[in-house]
């Protein structure tokens, strides 16, 4: 499923004195298979945008398609049957586009982990047999790296912070979405928890979920993990590209109110004194490129 949108607009507090544009003409394409990063400072429209992708916020103006689903604004009045159709479509869309909000553990509600994780499955696929539900739930819990037998009957409220977050993510991936959107998935985690979560996302991306979209404030994480990145600023996408393309212009990144990844800072400053390091902006690649540069200049000297 590709995501395509053009000239998307959205207003908050319509018809009041607080009116403000949350989206100010967003145009963006996200191809299937990407590990896509969305960056931008708070209030740049990122959260509003991602909530459009599964129809939580209806399109006010502009074109938006997610796979075969057309969420664009139409002026044509719909018949009752069409409305019903639309509602079913919306359910299917939400099944295909999973959304993990910030601090997802605060949405846990059920008595047991099993009930919470299977909530989405039961909503989206009401006709499944209990055994089928059990299998999907078990898969999801195991996919996020938890022990199904040990955890399934526990109350989600008695788990540790990291486990709660995993359970919440399991609850979203249980219905097998093909796109998974996560808003600041690492917020509040300790370094180990953070690394483990990024690893989990990569393994999901390799095995079960085609497209992953991550909203993040941490440029070092984005530089190290994403295949493509879009920069939001004042309700618009002002640049898209690979992390390499994007972070090579560090002046631009700081102009958007974002911090420049350390690797990009180093590359840029080395370039300024005539040292060209070719790398994407992951730590290991940067180190390799720099080591190679040293080796090559040594050779040249000999």
């Amino acid at each position: 499923m590709d995501i395509f949108c053009k000239d998307l607009y959205y207003q908050y507090n319509k018809n009041t004195e607080f009116v403000s544009y949350a989206l100010n003409g967003v145009s963006l394409t996200i191809k299937e298979g990407e590990f896509f990063g969305i960056i931008g400072h708070t209030g740049s429209g990122k959260s509003t945008f991602i909530q459009h992708l599964n129809g939580l916020i209806p399109v006010e103006q502009g074109i938006l398609t997610v796979g075969d689903y057309d969420l664009s604004k139409t002026d044509v009045k719909k018949s009752k049957k069409e409305k019903k159709q639309l509602k079913d479509n919306l359910k299917n869309l939400r099944r295909s586009v999973g959304m993990v909000f910030q601090y997802p553990e605060y949405q846990l509600f059920a008595e047991t982990v099993f009930d919470d994780v299977s909530f989405g499955i039961k909503n989206f696929m009401p006709n499944l047999s209990p055994e089928e539900v059990r299998i999907l739930t078990k898969n999801a819990i195991e996919t996020v790296g938890l022990d199904y037998e040990k955890i399934k009957d526990k109350s989600p409220f008695e788990l540790s912070g990291g486990q709660k977050r995993r359970v919440a993510i399991a609850g979203v991936i249980a219905s097998r979405p093909s796109i998974l959107i996560l808003d600041e998935p690492c917020a509040g985690l300790d370094p180990t928890g953070k690394t483990a979560l990024w690893n989990l996302l990569h393994s999901l991306h390799e095995r079960v979920i085609k497209t992953i979209i991550v909203v993040s404030h941490d440029m070092n994480d984005v530089a190290s993990n994403c295949t493509s990145v879009a920069v939001f600023n004042r309700g618009k996408v002002i640049k898209t590209g690979t992390p390499k393309e994007l972070f090579s212009d560090s002046a631009f990144i700081s102009d958007c109110g974002l911090e420049v990844p350390v690797t990009a800072y180093l590359t840029e400053n080395l370039k300024n004194v005539g040292i060209k390091i070719d790398s994407d902006y992951t730590i290991n690649r940067f180190a390799e490129s720099f080591a190679n540069y040293l080796k090559n200049t040594e050779k040249a000297d000999l």
Partner: peptide, 20 residues
């Protein structure tokens, strides 16, 4: 203790591993 060094130090560690 499950801690990680800051990014700059991670880079210098990576370089040291490569013999730089």
């Amino acid at each position: 203790t499950g801690m990680e060094p800051p990014v700059s130090m991670k880079i210098s560690l990576a370089l040291n591993k490569l013999g730089v």
